[in-house]
Structure formats: C-alpha cells, structure tokens
Amino acid sequence: MGHRARGFNRVDCGSVEALLAEGRAVVRYGDIDVVVVRTGKALFAFEDRCPHLGRPMTQALVTGKCVVCHRHGQRFDLVSGNRVGNGRGPQSQLRVFVAEIEDGRLWLSTPNQPMTGAARPPAGKQDGGIRKGSVRPDRDSR
C-alpha cells in the first residue's frame, strides 16, 4: 500500500489500526516525530516540523499530493518534500519518508539515502510506535 519503493533504515512504527481508523497518525522514527496520512489508497509520511518555522505540522492540511503548513500556508510536495509555489521565507524542503503497510504494521524508511547522526533510528530499535492521542482525521482520507 506504500506509494514508493522501499528505502533505507526501515523501521516498524506499530499497528496501523489508528491510521486506518482516523486517516492520520503521528509516529516515532528514531527521535523524529513523523506525520503519516492516508489519502484514498496512498500513504504519505513527513516530519512533524515545518522546515521554515520549525513548528509542528500535525494539523497541516493534506490536499492531493501536497501538504500545507497551517501556520504560514507554505505548500510542500509529499513525494519529494520540495516547496511548491512561491511561498514566504527561504527555499526549504520538508523531510519525507517512505510509508508502507505490511501484515497490519506501519513501516517507515528514508527514501533516497541513509540517515546520519541524531536522525538515525537507535541501533536495535525496530518499533518506532504510534503515539496515543495524536491522531487527527484528514479531510481527504474519507
């Protein structure tokens, strides 16, 4: 059900029950909070931090293959992470992840290259985990 090829540093982020029920969940990938959204049959995952202002993206609106920061309206492509349109502030890129469902589990990985330093999942840690109470329905997922 993932929309891209499997990437690097694949991590089991827990059961997909909340994601399937609500259309959106925040999970942990190592020490990074990641928003995972389901729109129809597609899954998208992006860091829960606006690259421009550093604010949470948990409440961001997902439309098609773009996410819109609810703080300043900047749009980002959910496949590449690139900024879409002119927007305000410096050119920035949203960190995106590969999201897949396999055997009732949500798996995340990095799309193009291995992560380094603090962004790398802890060694031996395979369960990122879905945070309780962090699920918000998405308008496009119904």
Results as ranks from 00 to 15, higher is better:
E17V: 14
R28D: 05
Q113V: 10
R6S: 11
N9I: 02
L53Q: 11
P56E: 04
L19I: 04
P121W: 00
D103A: 15
A18E: 11
D77S: 13
Q74Y: 03
S80H: 03
K41T: 10
Q113E: 12
V35G: 07
D48I: 06
R6V: 05
Q59V: 02
F46S: 04
A99S: 07
W107N: 08
R49K: 13
F8A: 15
V16T: 13
V11Q: 14
A99I: 03
A21K: 14
R105K: 14
V37W: 01
L20P: 01
N9P: 03
G73V: 04
A119P: 01
V27P: 03
T63Q: 15
P90I: 05
R95T: 09
Q93L: 05
D12N: 15
Q113S: 13
F97W: 03
Q91H: 10
G128K: 09
V35N: 04
Q91F: 01
R131A: 11
C50W: 01
R24Y: 00
G133C: 06
K125S: 15
K65I: 02
H72R: 10
P121I: 04
D138P: 01
L106V: 03
R88M: 10
G7F: 00
R38H: 03
G30A: 11
R131P: 00
E17A: 15
G104L: 10
S92M: 10
T116N: 11
G64C: 08
